[in-house]
Design a protein around this nucleic acid. Structure first.
Ligand code: FES
Ligand code: FES
Lengths: 159, 159
DNA sequence: GCAAACTGTACTAAATTGGTACTGTATTTG
DNA sequence: CAAATACAGTACCAATTTAGTACAGTTTGC
């Protein structure tokens, strides 16, 4: 359907939320609460992000997660890579080798690989820092607007 | 998974195949045979392409389909639009309105809409004519290489 | 009238995704 | 050291989406 998965979407939401207070440890519970998502779901996403080095985790009583890099250096493509296990590519054939018996002769495969590259660049060109304006006003509750009732992607939960 | 659906993929394959002999009526059976796909599947794709005006159909004994435009004027985006019923957009929130309760206040939505536009341009910038070299050698069986055993995307069928 | 070929719908099975539960481990705190 | 907190990892089930096919109908050409 040419969509990123919801988990990936949550990833962008979570990282964006974390970018509001960079270099600060936030627990999965806090993030889940702030975004209106289930704790288990948020944990799943954070774990994947951690495996790919986008966030650092800290266990224990006052543990939590924090971004491993400044938001300017985290792109949408990074998050996609972390949360979609399969290799990047709009078609099965162009995502890797071995799937298609006609790889050597097929010419549309080359075209798809080119298309993939352009799409990927688009995702790489957008950083998390660009997703929301920088929090100049440290007092203004900039992410609070997201705390009202949770994102609509969760309409099911919100019932 | 950030993939187009297989049906859409078949669409590109079918239209590319038809572009090899433009302005010529080809039956769904012939296309299915040439590409190693099931007839019902090919019919389903062609019907959708017809509904969106990409191919013209002709019923009856010697009927079939033909491209409604020269291959240069058919883009990958056209095929995606025809075969993915849902509106274009990488995330649910950015594909349309009404899905999310935070639309008005949400700032990452704007970013996603921008990303969508770039991705869409990438798909619009590639025409079917670019997918394979133009058939200068009318004798050379350029599409024949695809007739060997069917695309690997169908490994299940071929197995 | 018969056969070829498209039209349209409906259904079933498979694959993927989404969400959650449960058990384990590390760290802080007192 | 014990208790509480929070991450780690796995495994599982439900919901959704996709893929493929079947079937009954209609149009056209011979
Ligand atoms: S690489 Fe699979 S059909 Fe071209
Ligand atoms: S528009 Fe849905 S979370 Fe932003």
């Amino acid at each position: 359907m040419l969509r990123i998965s919801k988990l990936t979407d949550y990833g962008t939401l979570i990282v964006t939320q974390m970018a509001a207070t960079p270099a600060q440890v936030v627990s999965a519970t806090e993030l889940a609460d702030a975004l209106g998502l289930g704790l288990a779901t948020v944990s799943k996403v954070l774990k994947a992000l951690g495996r790919h080095g986008l966030v650092l985790s800290h266990r224990g009583t006052r543990g939590g997660y924090l971004l491993s890099r400044p938001p300017e250096q985290i792109s949408i493509a990074d998050i996609v890579d972390a949360l979609e296990e399969q290799p990047f590519g709009l078609t099965e054939c162009s995502a890797g080798s071995g799937t298609c018996s006609l790889e050597t002769g097929c010419r549309i495969r080359g075209s798809w690989i080119r298309i993939n590259a352009v799409v990927r660049e688009a995702l790489q060109g957008v950083s998390i820092a660009e997703m929301t304006p920088p929090p100049d006003l440290s007092n203004a509750p900039s992410p609070a607007s997201q705390r009202v009732s949770g994102p609509g992607r969760l309409a099911r939960n919100a019932g």
